[in-house]
């Protein structure tokens, strides 16, 4: 094939691929763009006209929604002496810290446990292997609501309720079936000869796990870390049940949800709040994306 045609073909391909991708991403971004534009509009405007027309009223855009979300809402009270007092609600910085405190251990702890279990299921023979694996898959479908009351009872007995430990363990427990299942899938695709030769060389099972399985599974570990981070970060129910709604421990989702008002009327705050809470997960995604790399196992595949 002459180099010219090959080059042309490559160009066509690139154009085709990228335009298709642009089409899809436009479809994907459209709803979120609405959210983004809305987050800068005054409350009364949101219901008066579509967000796509907001470009013509750009002078009406305001950062006030974000100011209220980050700094706390303003209220007016009439004090006992009859004077009007303006007060500000809680700001979000404490909720941010709480969310990070909840999330980081709740992401890291289950990964190691799940990776070890996945290795066991994928490569080791033991009594009950099948039945245990079936149970792990089956537990994927169990709605976690059914576990709330029994676990809360156990926590009461252990004095755990309302502590961070309670919520780390809960997220570990509820995240484990998926973690084990996903990592099992990945670890089981590691070429058998790599492990075989390591075992032949006299490495123990533990050594193989630490020195081979974990490094080779980095993309899968990173992928799971991203997902677990998102779930924990955006979780509301588990935090409310095991940590409580006290302002000292309230996480970001709780603060945002209560900011919307008891009857959900404050969309202007909801939209800006949604963007504020998105920042950290996106940073995590970008940071971990670099682990999705080609060729980790490339040298060691059956040719």
């Amino acid at each position: 094939m002459p180099a010219e045609t090959k080059k042309a073909k490559k160009l066509y391909e690139a154009v085709f691929v990228n335009s298709l991708l642009i089409l899809i991403t436009i479809a994907w971004i459209m709803p979120a763009l609405g959210l983004f534009v809305t987050s800068f509009r005054p409350r009364d405007d949101i219901f008066a006209s579509g967000w796509w027309t907001a470009g013509s009223q750009i002078e009406r855009f305001t950062l006030d929604n974000y100011r209220q979300v980050l700094g706390g809402r303003d209220f007016t009270f009439v004090g006992a002496d009859g004077e009007t007092v303006r007060a500000s609600g809680d700001n979000l910085s404490r909720a941010f810290q709480n969310s990070l405190t909840v999330t980081i251990p709740a992401v890291i702890i289950p990964i190691f446990i799940a990776a070890a279990a996945a290795y066991g299921f994928a490569w080791l023979n033991f009594a009950g292997r099948k039945i245990f694996f079936t149970i792990v898959v089956a537990l994927l479908v169990v709605p976690l609501q059914i576990a709330l009351i029994p676990i809360l009872q156990d926590y009461q007995a252990l004095g755990l309720t309302g502590t961070y430990l309670a919520i780390w363990l809960a997220h570990t427990g509820f995240g484990l079936p998926l973690a084990t299942y996903l990592l099992y899938n990945y670890i089981s695709t590691i070429p058998k000869d790599i492990l075989e030769s390591a075992f032949l060389d006299g490495a123990g099972r533990f050594t193989v796990f630490i020195r081979l399985i974990l490094p080779l599974s980095v993309p899968a570990l990173a992928a799971f870390a991203i997902f677990q981070f998102l779930w924990v970060w955006n979780d509301l129910l588990i935090a409310l049940v095991f940590l409580g709604a006290n302002a000292d421990v309230a996480v970001l989702t709780q603060r945002l949800q209560s900011m919307v008002g008891s009857r959900g009327q404050d969309w202007h705050l909801l939209t800006s709040g949604a963007f504020v809470s998105m920042v950290i997960p996106l940073i995590v995604f970008f940071a971990l994306q670099r682990f999705f790399i080609r060729g980790l196992m490339s040298g060691s595949v059956k040719g």
Binding site: W28, I29, F227, L236, A274, S277, M278, L282
Partner: peptide, 13 residues
Amino acid sequence: AIIFMPMAISFVG
């Protein structure tokens, strides 16, 4: 990143 973004938005959002 764009396709991933919806996952990062909380369910309320």
